[in-house]
């Protein structure tokens, strides 16, 4: 594999982890968030600072990073208890902008220069790079997917589904909206934090602009494209949106145009996402299995 395709592959795996996190919040618990890149960034900055200024290794820093992003996620999840739908969307956009400007203007976070010289991850005495970093990211992605799968099977997951479907009915059935919305926020943001930590040690240089609002929209597009609330949807979404810009690269000027057109076609013809309810992929799959489409 060329260095180029390894880099693309690693970034896709990292973004898939972040998209899985957003899927927990948006797809499972039904709370819209347009500021998920903020938590991606918080994870990246936390890991970068802990390993450069803090002198910790990636592995000792990781639990702290997950704790920090989860905790911030808890606080920023609080608005979701009072706000619904479009108001929550706007609030989360605001949160994204605030986090980015804090990174950009507070000298502690490196200001506009960002943070450089982030050490490589060391595993079994080896410095992880190239293919091994791709494998490490894929391993973390597998772990994330396993947690998502377990979550959908747990009572907490079911409680989140019920809240997504109808909050009033769910609460009259003993589901505490406060508790389970916050659970989804903590879990989802911690996953973004994990993605952020990997990103920081892969790029080894980060700056605030990497985690702006466009990145949030990109992550949300991955989730929507792949299929909200499905297990594999975010991974497929990250794959498609990661590869397409590269495939269209020879078209230079028309690249973004084609990309946008494809997204619009998706929304028109597969509104539930590639793996969503009644999608072509799902119908074909059930036909192959011999069941009714």
């Amino acid at each position: 594999m060329s260095e180029y395709s390894i880099t693309i592959g690693t970034l896709i795996a990292i973004q898939a982890i972040v998209a899985c996190g957003l899927n927990v919040i948006v797809g499972y618990a039904g709370q819209i968030s347009l500021g998920h890149a903020a938590f991606f960034g918080i994870g990246a900055y936390a890991s970068a600072l802990l390993t450069t200024a803090g002198g910790l290794s990636f592995w000792t820093a990781l639990p702290v990073v997950l704790g920090i992003t989860g905790l911030v996620g808890l606080f920023l999840g609080l608005p979701s208890l009072r706000l619904r739908e479009d108001f929550l969307a706007i609030t989360t956009i605001g949160i994204n902008f605030i986090v980015v400007s804090v990174f950009q203007y507070v000298p502690f976070f490196g200001g506009a220069l960002g943070i450089g010289g982030i050490p490589r991850i060391v595993l079994f005495g080896e410095r992880i790079r190239g293919v091994s970093f791709l494998l490490l990211s894929a391993g973390f992605l597998a772990a994330t997917l396993a947690i998502c799968w377990l979550f959908t099977r747990s009572w907490s997951g079911l409680a989140c589904f019920a809240l997504r479907e109808d909050e009033t009915a769910a609460s009259s059935m003993g589901v505490s909206p406060v508790r389970f919305k916050l659970t989804a926020f903590i879990l989802g943001t911690a996953m973004a934090g994990l993605g952020g930590a990997l990103y920081a040690h892969f790029m080894r240089f980060i700056s605030a602009t990497d985690f702006g609002f466009p990145m949030s929209v990109m992550i949300l597009s991955m989730v929507v494209l792949g299929g909200m609330g499905t297990l594999w949807g975010p991974v497929l979404g990250a794959l498609v949106l990661g590869i397409l810009p590269e495939v269209f690269r020879p078209l230079t000027d028309y690249r973004m145009f084609l990309y946008a057109a494809l997204l619009l076609m998706m929304i028109r013809f597969q509104p539930g996402g590639l793996l969503g309810e009644n999608s072509l992929a799902r119908q074909t799959f059930s036909r192959l299995k011999g069941g009714k489409p």
Binding site: S154, W155, M173, S176
Partner: peptide
């Protein structure tokens, strides 16, 4: 109702 966990959200399967 009794499976959602009192303080820590339940991880058991439904």
């Amino acid at each position: 109702l009794s499976c959602y966990g009192r303080l820590i959200p339940s991880c058991r399967s439904w």
